[in-house]
Nucleic acid binder design. Sequence first.
DNA 1: ATTTTCAAT
Length: 212
Amino acid sequence: HSFCSMLLPRKKFLYHYKNVRWARGRHETYLCFVVKRRVGPDTLTFDFGHLRNRNGCHVELLFLRYLGALCPGLWGYGAAGEKRLSYSITWFCSWSPCANCSIQLSQFLRNTPNLRLRIFVSRLYFCDMEDSLEREGLRMLSRAGVRISVMSYKDFFYCWQKFVDSKTSSFKAWEELHQNSVRLTRKLNRILQFFQSWDLEDLRDALKLLGL
DNA sequence: ATTTTCAAT
């Protein structure tokens, strides 16, 4: 695509996705995505790539702009409501969405039931205050059926393989990756006020990865 | 102990 170069430079990935407590200077947000078409119980990987925020537009809303091109037939072909295709999108974002993006996404998804969204985030954006709008936004997304998780080692590893110009260098975890991921996962669970259970698609992906 | 955040210069 013209709007998303295929591979992310290693340095950029490591700088922007590092789940450090004090993410000084991360004034950009990256979004790596996988689009899968759902055919009955099966999903076929259809497209992947990455985006970053531009011109004051948050990357999530930028993604929504490109959604029509990424998911042909999402809104049906020809006659209204006919032959709508179903898609699943998984994205990995360096920051969690701001309140406004969460609201926009929730509304969009309510009007597009044939689209499923699964979100992984490296860091939580403005979620320190108990009453922050960002926290409420995450709950809103959750209620709209989006499963949100904090990225763990396996997710960084996957992104390195899939989206990064890693050549032959293997992914090396930074100090504190695991601790930070655990801390942020606990924080997200407290925000969402319940423990999200496994879902079937995660299980299928895990089995596929193991070659089962 | 404390530090930042999809910038603005």
